[in-house]
Amino acid sequence: MPVEIRPETFSLVHFDANEIRAIVEKLVVLIGLPAAASVTIEVDESTPLAHAVVTSTDPIVIAVESGAFEDPKVVRHLNAIAATDVLGKLLLSVKDRLDPAFGEAPADADLTLPEVAAWETYCVGRLGRLGHRVQRQRRLYQFRNRHGFTDAADAAFDALWTADGLTWADISAISNQATA
């Protein structure tokens, strides 16, 4: 499993490429991505912002602003939990996209904010069951912001959070029903 971290050496943040590589390697196995999958993580260390996106699924390329991996308590230092959170969520979404049974989801740029929140809920819920420490209430808050602070939204969140084997149509339907 070839994993590449760009850059290999950081100058504006105190990140260790080997530590990030180890996190990716562990996640690829845990999530069940193809053993031969090539994964590249491009870290933009010039910004403290925290945007992270999948720019390609074959090969897998994830572009991350350095704030996404940053320890919220120690400026410019890597936080393994944050990095696992971000990468795990995105790699699970890659796994979904690579699975023909999942169906055709819109490109990331075309997803609505409720759809993003719904898919992330589904991904992070699974990440938690794989043994990673996740913040359920934080994800519920995000979901509620996109679907409303209602009992229907909370029920939809629970359905996504506890689910396995959903298709894009399932996720989209649950999201739509919550906002209806």
Binding site: P72, K73, V74, V75, Q135, R136, Q137, R138, R139, L140, Y141, Q142
Partner: peptide
């Protein structure tokens, strides 16, 4: 909001 006390510096 799902924030741990002390989560941020």
């Amino acid at each position: 909001m799902g924030t741990d006390l002390g989560e941020f510096s």
